[in-house]
């Protein structure tokens, strides 16, 4: 499983970015390998369609789960189409959000 969190700086200690479509980076955790990586969201400054561009980025990186503080209704619909499970009301540091999620799932 690959879990993504929008973050405000390219590190796993970085705080989450509240607006997922406008986040410049995504922190991605791969539960198989146990590794973190940070990918850039090229659409973060897009004048049109930042939300779709962000979902496309997640999809291109084979993300299964998105944790965010807040996801707009349009982005939510699109995430569902992309087959990405989205969970809201996560905040704080990116790494902590991922841990919290894994704990709640009873996973490793």
């Amino acid at each position: 499983m690959r879990i993504a969190v929008p973050v405000s700086a390219p590190s796993k200690e970085a705080l989450m970015d509240e607006k997922f479509g406008r986040a410049q980076w995504f922190l991605i955790y791969d539960s198989q390998s146990g590794r973190y990586e940070v990918v850039e969201n090229p659409g973060f400054e897009a004048s049109s369609g930042a939300g779709p561009a962000a979902v496309q980025t997640l999809r291109n990186h084979s993300v299964d789960v998105l944790l965010a503080e807040n996801i707009g209704p349009k982005a939510k619909d699109l995430l569902a189409v992309a087959g990405i499970k989205a969970y809201e009301d996560y905040s704080g540091r990116g790494e902590d959000a991922i841990r919290e999620f894994l704990t709640s799932q009873g996973s490793r």
Binding site: G43, A46, S48, G49, P52, Q56, R59, K74, L78, V81
Partner: peptide, 22 residues
């Protein structure tokens, strides 16, 4: 189609999807 569209109105997952509002 996605690469051509300057308005980010197309995403490609398994197939291309057009987002009408954009």
């Amino acid at each position: 189609c996605r690469d051509f569209c300057r308005f980010n109105a197309i995403v490609v997952f398994d197939k291309a999807i057009v987002l009408e509002e954009f």
